Amino acid sequence: MNMYLGYFENEENTESDNPPIGIVLAKEKDELVIQYAMHNVSSQLFVQKYQLYLPNREELRKVIEDELNSEV
């Protein structure tokens, strides 16, 4: 994911843009997995979907539930 963040910052951002941020969404919390995934990563992570605003709790819950239901 760090590769995508680097690409986006170098190729898509304009001078007036802030650096991109990343949000990791997971079904279960696993501190050890996050620790290893973030090992030696000094930048933020890029996310799969770009949005101009962060969704509220209910919108986010619905998106996650829809994604989980589509896997079945």
Rank of each mutant, 00 (worst) to 15 (best):
V41A: 05
L60Q: 01
Q48F: 04
L68W: 10
E12T: 09
V24I: 15
Q51R: 13
Q35W: 02
L45A: 08
S70A: 14
P20G: 15
E28T: 08
M1Q: 03
I23A: 08
N13H: 00
E31K: 06
V41Y: 01
V63F: 11
V47R: 11
V33A: 09
E28H: 10
Y7C: 10
G6L: 14
K27D: 09
T14N: 10
Q48A: 12
N18I: 05
E31H: 01
Q35G: 03
Y53V: 04
I21Q: 14
M1A: 07
S43M: 05
E67W: 15
S70L: 07
E59G: 04
G6V: 07
M38V: 03
N2V: 09
L25P: 00
L5Q: 15
S16N: 14
P19G: 03
G22M: 05
L45E: 02
N69G: 02
N56V: 00
G6M: 10
Y4R: 14
Q35I: 00
K27Q: 11
S43C: 04
L54I: 02
E15T: 11
N56F: 02
Y53P: 00
M38L: 12
N2K: 13
G22K: 02
E15K: 14
I21R: 15
D66Y: 08
R57A: 10
Y4H: 09
L60G: 01
Q44T: 08
Y36F: 07
M38K: 12
V63W: 12
T14C: 05
E71M: 08
G6P: 03
G22C: 03
Y4A: 09
D66M: 06
E58T: 07
D17C: 15
E59A: 09
L60I: 06
Y50M: 04
Q35N: 05
R61F: 09
N10M: 09
N40P: 00
S16A: 13
E65H: 03
S43R: 09
E12H: 04
L25V: 08
V72C: 01
N2Q: 13
K27C: 01
E28R: 13
M1C: 04
E59D: 06
T14P: 00
M1G: 08
I21D: 12
E65A: 02
Q51V: 11
D30P: 01
V47H: 14
